[in-house]
Design a protein around this nucleic acid. Structure first.
Lengths: 213, 213
DNA sequence: AGGATGATGAGACTTAGGTCTCATGATGAG
DNA sequence: CTCATCATGAGACCTAAGTCTCATCATCCT
C-alpha cells in the first residue's frame, strides 16, 4: 500500500531521485551564479554526492550546468500598462531583456560557450539556449500583426533577438570595445531600426511592396 | 661571419624556429580546414614535431589553433566598380562578408568557441576575432561620412558587424532554425535596416535630431 | 677546436571530462 | 520476513590539456 501522508520528505525511489537531482542542480546553480564554470567533481562535492552519481543524472558537464541555468520565470516583459505603440512596446521588452542578460552575463557566457561544443549532436539538446526571448519579443509586435504576416513577425523577432542577445553583447564589449551601457544602447537602437524597417519595408524574407534595394 | 647565400633552406637558429613554427601552423591549418578541432598532440604529430615543442611555440591549444585561422587577405570587399549608393555598397560588403563566414563556418565556430574561454585574460590575445570586418564595413559608409560623424560611422559599423557575424549566423541557424540561405538573407536585411535608420535617425549613441522614440 | 647556447624530443606528472565495474545499503513487492 | 531491485559510493581507467625536467644535438662564438 502507498504511504498515506508524509509531511516532510517523502522517501521512496522516485523521491530519492528527485532529491539527488535537485541537490545537484542547486549546487550547480549556486556555483554558476558566482560566475564559475565548476567541474563535475566540484558540483558533486558541493552537493555531497559522488561524481559517478552526478554522471548518472547528467551525461556531461554541459548538461549539468545547463540545468543550472537561471530560470527566468517572467512570462512577459511588457510590464504594467503596456503601451500601444509598437516601438515603445519593443523598447520595453528590449530594455528588460538586455537588463536580464547583463545581470546574468557570466552564466550567459558560460551557456554560450557550452552550447558551441564541436559535436553538433549535443548542441540540440540544450533547452536553455532556446529561451523565451522570441515569445517576449513577439508580444511587442502584437499591435502590428496585421501589417506583418505571421511569418514576417517571426522573421523580425529572430532578427531582433539575434541583435540583442548575449552573442551581440559579448561581441560589442569584448571586441567592439564598448562599455556595457554603450552596448545596451547600441542593441536598443538596433532593435528599433529593425522594427522601423519592417514597418516601412516589410520583414526579412517577406518583402512587401518594393524590393529592399 | 654570416653565410653569404643559401638558396634553399637557410639553416640557423632563427630559421629553424621559423620552420618549426611554420610547420605547426601549416599542420594546424590543414586540420582546422577540415572542420576538426585537433588536439595539440594531433597537430604536433601531423607536423612531425614533439608535443613539448608545440607548447614552446604556442602556450595553449587556443593560441595554436588561432594561428591557424584562415588568413583573409582581401583588403576590401567592395570589389570592382564600387557603387556610390551607400545601401548598394553596404549590400556588397555584407554579401561578400557573409559568404566568407559561411564558407569558413567550421573554423569560425571553432574560433568563436575558443574566444569564449572563461579566463578573460587570454581572451584579449586573440588577434583573429578582431578581423577586418569593421574596416570593410566602414568602407561602405564612405559616401555618408559627412552625414554621420566619425563616431556615428564607427557605432553604426559595430552594430552592423554584430548583426552579420558568425555569432548571428550560429544563433539564426542553430536556434532560430533558419537555413544558411535564410540566415544570410536575414543578415542582409538587418544590415540595410540599420543603415536606413542611421541615415534617417542618426547612429546609435549619436542621435541627431529627435530622440529615437 | 672547443665550450656555451639554444632548439628539440622524450617522458613524467597533474587536472578534468567521461566511462565502467563492483560492492553496499535501502526500498519495495511477494 | 525475504529476496529482488535500484540508487549510490568508491575507485579504476582512458584521453587530452598543460607543465616541467632532463638528455641530446646542432649552431654559434671565441
Amino acid at each position: 500500500m502507498t504511504p498515506v501522508s508524509m509531511p516532510y520528505e517523502a522517501s521512496g525511489r522516485a523521491e530519492q531521485k528527485l532529491r539527488t537531482r535537485s541537490a545537484l542542480v542547486a549546487a550547480a546553480r549556486a556555483l554558476v551564479a558566482q560566475g564559475a564554470t565548476p567541474s563535475v567533481a566540484e558540483v558533486a562535492d558541493a552537493a555531497s554526492i559522488s561524481r559517478a552519481t552526478a554522471y548518472r543524472y547528467f551525461p556531461s558537464q554541459r548538461q549539468l550546468l545547463a540545468a543550472a541555468h537561471p530560470e527566468t520565470a517572467a512570462t512577459s516583459m511588457l510590464g504594467e500598462d503596456p503601451p500601444e505603440d509598437p516601438a515603445a512596446r519593443l523598447d520595453r521588452v528590449v530594455q528588460a531583456f538586455t537588463a536580464l542578460i547583463v545581470r546574468t552575463e557570466q552564466q550567459q557566457r558560460t551557456m554560450l560557450r557550452l552550447s558551441l561544443a564541436e559535436d553538433g549532436t549535443e548542441r540540440v539538446g540544450l533547452p536553455l539556449r532556446q529561451g523565451r526571448a522570441i515569445t517576449w519579443i513577439t508580444e511587442a509586435f502584437e499591435p502590428v500583426r496585421e501589417q506583418l504576416t505571421d511569418d514576417g513577425v517571426r522573421a523580425l523577432a529572430l532578427a531582433v533577438r539575434s541583435a540583442i542577445g548575449i552573442e551581440a553583447l559579448v561581441w560589442l564589449t569584448d571586441i567592439g570595445g564598448l562599455t556595457r551601457e554603450q552596448a545596451v544602447e547600441s542593441m536598443r537602437w538596433s532593435a528599433q531600426a529593425l522594427l522601423q524597417a519592417a514597418l516601412s519595408r516589410g520583414a526579412p524574407g517577406v518583402e512587401v511592396g518594393a524590393k529592399a534595394r
